[in-house]
């Protein structure tokens, strides 16, 4: 295990006009750690995720990432080609709505295989084998490899999106409400899958969710956000079982036992 954080965030702030969506946020994320970010809509958690994953630039602050070669780089100081390469190899992003993370008009297999081809894989047989393998790992019937994801159920689409992200063995995955629009039974299956994958692959992940049960199941650590600020952070079960901040207590007491 590497003692240098994989991701190091300092003084991250982002305003939209007069609204501070993220206000002076900082944390470290180590290899294999899963960080949950919880809070209600408008708390700034999604903006934070978009800043962390370099989809938008913050007004202030740094996000440092330990590259595969061990060097630590500020992701906003990377050149665009470097950043894009990072995003399609070493990072993943799982959107709440699979439509935002999949190509609707190409087959499930091609959706999964795209990142392989983007990094130069040029052997069809091998590409297809890896796509098949990943669809099986996320429990999608491999007989449907050539079907377009729009013919799949929501849960299946989400699993294809996950496979599409993991096929290049990223070290860090960002997830925005990954179980958001799904039925409860489908959610459980997906959560179990995500939990197994993050543990087996030693993935680091930042997961934004408003669902405390999802946070408890998936994350090692939790940050509670409100009004663009982190009001409480710590070990997931500590934050949920012994909340200190009034807002966290309110959040925990507002839901059925997570």
């Amino acid at each position: 295990m590497n003692d240098t954080p994989l991701l190091q965030v300092e003084g991250l702030s982002k305003r939209f006009g007069r609204i501070a969506a993220c206000d002076d946020i900082g944390f470290d994320l180590h290899d294999g750690e899963v960080l949950g970010i919880v809070g209600e809509s408008g708390s700034g958690k999604t903006t934070l995720l978009r800043c962390l994953s370099a989809l938008i630039a913050p007004d202030r602050g740094t996000v440092r990432y330990r590259m595969r070669d061990g060097s630590r780089r500020d992701v906003f100081a990377l050149s665009e080609p470097e950043r894009r390469l990072l995003m399609r190899t070493d990072w993943g992003f799982v959107h709440q709505n699979p439509r935002d993370g999949l190509r609707a008009h190409v087959s499930a297999g091609a959706n999964v295989a795209e990142r392989l081809m983007a990094v130069g894989a040029r052997h069809y047989g091998e590409i297809r084998e890896r796509a098949t393998d990943w669809l099986a790992r996320v429990e999608v019937d491999t007989a449907r490899i050539d079907d377009a994801p729009r013919t799949f159920s929501g849960g299946m689409q989400q699993r294809v999106q996950i496979a599409r992200n993991l096929v290049t063995h990223p070290r860090l995955v960002f997830m925005d409400e990954p179980t958001g629009g799904l039925d409860v039974s489908v959610q459980a299956r997906l959560l179990d899958l995500l939990r197994g994958l993050t543990a087996d692959l030693g993935l680091s992940a930042v997961i934004v969710t408003h669902d405390l049960a999802v946070a408890r199941l998936l994350s090692h650590r939790l940050m509670v956000m409100r009004g663009g600020q982190v009001v409480e952070a710590g070990l997931t079960d500590q934050v949920l079982d012994d909340p200190q901040h009034p807002y966290t207590q309110l959040l925990v007491n507002s839901v059925l036992q997570p």
């Binding site: 665009e80 080609p81 894009r84 190509r103 190409v106 087959s107 297999g109 091609a110 295989a113 795209e114 990142r115 392989l116 081809m117 983007a118 990094v119 130069g120 040029r122 069809y124 590409i127 297809r128 490899i145 050539d146």
Partner: peptide
């Protein structure tokens, strides 16, 4: 335009992949 500028042409092979798969 960005894909051309950065020589990111994996997408082109997605189309050929679809051909072979189909």
């Amino acid at each position: 335009r960005k894909l051309h500028a950065l020589s990111e042409y994996g997408l082109m092979h997605v189309k050929l992949y679809e051909d072979i798969a189909r």
